[in-house]
């Protein structure tokens, strides 16, 4: 039976439900998210078991990117120790979740369901970030954390004053605008990650469908999707980094230090060198 190239492009914008446990619908993107966390937890457990103070070559290869990222975080404010875990954790989680998507079998192995439109494949695993619920959840964590920092350091009144803006008589106009700009961070954070990963999925499906038609003509057709998989790996890394760095930038803006902090930014590329930086930073209220 000949297959039209059109029918090979099967991407649904919402995650498909695999099965239900009571009121909870277990979707395939939840499986992807849990799988990513399990990989992360397992890898860190295995890694920490063999870690030593004098790093082996493999250990320093793993530590290098994490130290690089935490070095950037250390350059942001003097309170970086409170949120470096969040930033690096978000980076690793999104990175693993994105890179899961290019593994063979993810998105291609699944159940075939009969619908009124015809046969439809429901994959067991879907890249977690190709579901808006996952990215919105991560963005909500970031949102709560940076609002919490602003309220904690400036007080609820100070935070509202910050939203009202400087010329006090402009407050009725500026307050809604600032409120919308705060909320738009939530939307842009989640939509950016979702849009990128979902567009990547659509791109991969389209490329596979296009080249499957030509696979008997050109052996080269194998290499075209491979190139796009390489591109997907790059995009996954960049998006994870963007999400983590934006989280850092929003928290930095919320903390809004006047003094200190910036003196350290020159040493930002160094690994976090511990107490020396904390001691040199002036104390804050």
């Amino acid at each position: 039976m000949p297959i039209a190239a059109d029918s090979l492009i099967q991407v649904s914008i919402k995650a498909e439900t695999l099965f239900t446990i009571g009121p909870l619908q277990v979707t395939n993107s939840m499986v992807g998210a849990v799988l990513a966390s399990a990989i992360l937890l397992g890898a860190s457990w295995w890694f920490l078991r063999g870690a030593s103070l004098v790093p082996s070559r493999f250990q320093s290869a793993v530590e290098l990117p994490i130290e690089w990222l935490s070095g950037i975080v250390a350059g942001s404010t003097s309170r970086w120790r409170s949120y470096v875990g969040l930033v690096v954790g978000l980076f690793l989680m999104i990175l693993i979740a994105n890179w899961l998507g290019v593994l063979p079998g993810v998105g291609t192995i699944g159940l075939v369901k009969e619908t009124e439109a015809g046969k439809e494949l429901v994959p067991f695993v879907r890249p977690a970030a190709a579901d808006l619920n996952f990215t919105l959840g991560l963005a909500l964590i970031t949102f709560v954390v940076f609002v919490w920092w602003a309220v904690r350091l400036h007080g609820p009144i100070g935070y509202l004053k910050e939203l009202a803006g400087e010329p006090r008589y402009m407050a009725p106009l500026m307050f809604p605008i600032h409120l919308i700009s705060e909320l738009s961070r939530l939307i842009s954070l989640s939509m950016r990650l979702f849009g990128n990963v979902f567009a990547g999925e659509v791109l991969m499906a389209t490329m596979l469908a296009l080249t499957t038609a030509a696979i008997f003509v050109l052996p080269l057709a194998f290499f075209v999707p491979a190139f796009f998989i390489l591109l997907e790996l790059l995009f996954g890394l960049v998006q994870a980094m963007v999400f983590a760095l934006l989280t850092m930038a929003y928290i930095t803006l919320a903390i809004a230090e006047q003094q200190g902090g910036h003196a350290e930014s020159d040493q930002g590329d160094h690994a976090p060198s511990g107490a020396a930086q904390d001691a040199s930073a002036p104390a804050h209220s």
């Binding site: 914008i13 939509m191 979902f198 760095l245």
Partner: peptide
């Protein structure tokens, strides 16, 4: 640079999300 790139790119992603919604929903 990465932050500016991300903030600029977000506008394009909004268009993409709207287009994808129009196609798939």
């Amino acid at each position: 640079y990465i932050l500016g790139l991300a903030l600029t790119e977000a506008i394009g992603i909004y268009c993409l999300v709207v287009a994808l919604m129009l196609i798939f929903i």
